[in-house]
Simulated scan of single mutants.
Amino acid sequence: MQIHHIGAQASLLNRFIAEARDIKIQSDRMRFRTNIQRIAHILGYELSKALSYRNTTVTTPLGEKEIPLIQNKVVICSILRAGIAFHNGLLDYFDGAENAFVSAYRHHTGHGDDFEILVEYLSSPSLQGKTLLLADPMLATGRSFMAAYDALKKMGTPSEIHLLAVVGSTPGIAAVEAYFPEDSHLWIAAMDDRLNEKGYIIPGLGDAGDLAYGPKLQH
């Protein structure tokens, strides 16, 4: 897997990451969602440089101009519910993309902090020969990405796989790197070193789903 750590170079992206992490700012749900969308815009733009292009003739009022345009058939798949704002940001840029959604959530087994990832919903077009953008704001253990990918396998084999995340942990990144095909890509805004005993990213930013849409009742 090729890892693209976009936040490693100082840029405007850092402001959006900082605001998404900051407990004094992130409590404003609309602003949090907006920052997640802004981060998706930047990751999507950087990802677009790795896609395939073909010159296309565009007619202007005064003549014609050849412009290289993306040829990939893109499918954006987000992991519900935290991925909705992230999905919308990617869709702002890949507005002609097809869309897929998968629910992948932590189900605690009752044995301390142990949990399993359950997938109970999948809506997807065929992925055969297409470019899959698999998006989830938080890459903690990596198990949600893996479960979503396993669920999508019955929809066909993509020609390319691109994972996108806002914040990821070093252990989680290593896990998906080992699990996904070697020619996959990960586009990530920020990387943190560790997980706590509950499998949450430290320092991370908290629960992205709760911050975007409000607290939820646990199963």
Rank of each mutant, 00 (worst) to 15 (best):
Q2I: 05
I6W: 06
I6S: 05
G7R: 06
S11Q: 13
R15E: 12
F16L: 07
E19N: 11
A20T: 02
R21I: 00
I25A: 10
D28M: 00
R29A: 13
R31M: 14
F32P: 02
F32Y: 04
T34P: 00
T34A: 12
I42K: 01
E46M: 10
L47M: 11
L51C: 09
L51G: 07
S52Y: 10
S52G: 08
S52T: 12
T56K: 11
T56D: 05
T59H: 14
N72C: 03
V75L: 00
I76P: 01
C77M: 08
I79V: 12
I79M: 12
I84D: 04
N88P: 02
L90F: 12
S103K: 04
H107I: 08
H108L: 10
T109G: 01
H111C: 10
D113V: 03
S124R: 05
P125N: 03
Q128Y: 13
L132D: 10
L132V: 12
L132T: 07
L139N: 00
A148W: 08
Y149R: 00
K153E: 11
K154I: 15
H162V: 07
G168T: 04
S169Q: 04
S169I: 04
P171A: 03
E177M: 12
A178M: 15
F180D: 04
E182Y: 03
H185I: 09
H185S: 13
I188H: 08
I188T: 01
I188Q: 05
M191P: 00
D192P: 07
E197L: 10
G199T: 11
I201P: 06
I201S: 06
A208H: 02
G214W: 02
P215T: 14
Q218T: 08
